[in-house]
């Protein structure tokens, strides 16, 4: 019972947050609502005993990705008026499509197909059960092939990001670490022998 209550609370927060993300005017607020949505979904994962995923979601998405996102949003001067252009014009079509989709979605993804009687809740484990351990035991064995592909995708992402942003500018002053490290005292300090000044 209490579980159901918790689920509904977080589900409502999540839907609310997600709706706000696409409706608020200010992009910074939208990003913050996205954080709220992630938090709520992390809580729902927690209910499913997927602690590892829940914590990763908070750490990676809320902690790293969204902070980066906020930075970008703050740096860019986004003209929201321009983005809203054509909103009214496409509104009737949009609403029509949305209503049609929602009616069909509800017809299929309704309680008759996804109620607890149809799709049983996962069985509960004891306190000694570790979701992280279970994930770890299959990630590098059963799922080693998808895991490696995911690694390659990350590598491609790095290559792509560097290719698209690295630009050699002839005017930029570079440091050459090689010559910096191999510098000797004689290159920098010149001993000059001078006669001591004579007192007059």
């Amino acid at each position: 019972m209490i579980e159901k209550l918790i689920f509904y609370i977080f589900a409502i927060i999540m839907v609310f947050g997600a709706t706000m993300v696409i409706t608020v005017r200010n992009p910074v607020r939208a990003a913050l609502f996205l954080v709220l949505t992630f938090f709520a979904s992390a809580a729902i994962w927690m209910l499913l005993e997927a602690e590892f995923l829940a914590i990763t979601l908070v750490l990676v998405y809320v902690g790293a990705v969204m902070v980066l996102f906020l930075f970008v949003v703050m740096m860019l001067d986004i003209n929201t008026a321009l983005l809203k252009e054509g909103f009214i014009r496409y509104l009737p079509v949009g609403i029509g499509v949305a209503i049609l989709l929602v009616v069909m979605l509800v017809g299929v993804v309704g309680p008759e197909n996804f109620s607890l009687d149809e799709m049983a809740a996962p069985e509960r484990h004891g306190a000694d059960y570790s979701n992280t351990r279970e994930l770890g035991s299959v990630l590098y064995t059963v799922y080693v092939y998808p895991f490696e592909i995911a690694a390659v995708i990350l590598l491609v992402a790095i290559i792509a990001a560097i290719t698209l942003t690295l630009r050699k500018r002839p005017t930029t002053k570079y440091q050459n670490p090689d010559s910096q490290v191999s510098v000797k005292r004689d290159d920098r300090v010149r001993m000059v022998k001078m006669k001591s000044e004579e007192k007059k």
Binding site: P146, I149, A150, V156, I159, L164
Partner: peptide
């Protein structure tokens, strides 16, 4: 496996976007 289909597709698409 659906997982490999999706990952393969993403690897292909990501390279093409770049």
């Amino acid at each position: 496996n659906f997982l490999t289909i999706y990952l393969g597709l993403e690897l292909l698409s990501l390279s093409l976007y770049a």
